[in-house]
Design a binder for these strands. Structure first.
Lengths: 136, 136
DNA sequence: CAGGATTGCTATGATCAACAACAATAGCTA
DNA sequence: TAGCTATTGTTGTTGATCATAGCAATCCTG
């Protein structure tokens, strides 16, 4: 079939993102995590006592949608909340949370390596800066 | 905030895809089309008398999900169906469908140009082949 | 011509993100 | 310090998207 779509960067971006997300998602599912969950855990680990809304801003997740996300992580005993002042709360990893986060990080790094390995060497190093130019 | 995520190609892929999809989606919405609709119209235009399931295979859309998609395009008078044999049907653009498709193509090409323009020149030509290596 | 594969379709469920609204609190400014 | 505005966490709802299973009709092939 004649298909001009893969010539379009935007379309290939869509397809590549979907394909890789499906793949990584399946691997993270073995830990009971989704990509969002993993990224939240990673960010909390790197930024002790972040606040839920600051996290949302960084990840472009609306405050309202952080609620069920954090609730799930808390219910699983991966994060804790401590009141910072009357309205804000500090987020931090529990021991189990740190373990889970490190396991996720292992999966993610292995996956990223595989991704890069698929790309012909002469294009490889250009992907990240090109992608980041599109959204940052 | 300390954020190692944008260093990960997979994460940047996710974010870039989401950001660009939102942007292009808004522009195509002025035509009453989503990205999927546009890609279906484009593919039908290039392949007269394709069948719905062949289209689905090419775009990785399940047969079941093609139904409401095509129904919408047909209801808007953009495509027609003609029985090919007892069970298959040929899809083709109407006049209005071709016009809409060309308008969409204009928006898409302009958008793709803008995307590439955002990327520093030395990375630019590498994006498409790198992306395609990830999913094709 | 018999059986397996294909096509189009119905129906359904899960997931996800966007939106509006609200009460409580924090923090700035006059 | 009193008052106003912005922020935080939350609820509830909505729409869009996608995967899955199943079904009847039709086809193709051995």
């Amino acid at each position: 079939m004649r298909d001009p779509l893969p010539q379009l960067p935007g379309y290939s971006l869509r397809r590549a993102a979907h394909a890789t997300a499906t793949e990584l998602g399946a691997r993270l599912a073995t830990l009971g995590l989704r990509q969002v969950d993993a990224s939240v855990l990673i960010l909390i680990a790197q930024n002790a006592d972040v606040t839920a809304s600051a996290l949302g801003r960084q990840l472009d997740i609306q405050r309202a949608n952080m609620v069920p996300l954090l609730k799930k992580l808390e219910d699983e005993g991966l994060i804790e909340r401590q009141p910072l002042d009357g309205k804000s709360q500090a987020l931090l990893l529990t021991g189990a949370g740190r373990e889970r986060m490190e396991a996720a990080l292992g999966i993610i790094h292995a996956f990223e390596d595989e991704l890069l390995a698929r790309i012909p060497p002469r294009h490889r190093e250009h992907l990240l800066p090109a992608l980041n130019a599109l959204w940052r």
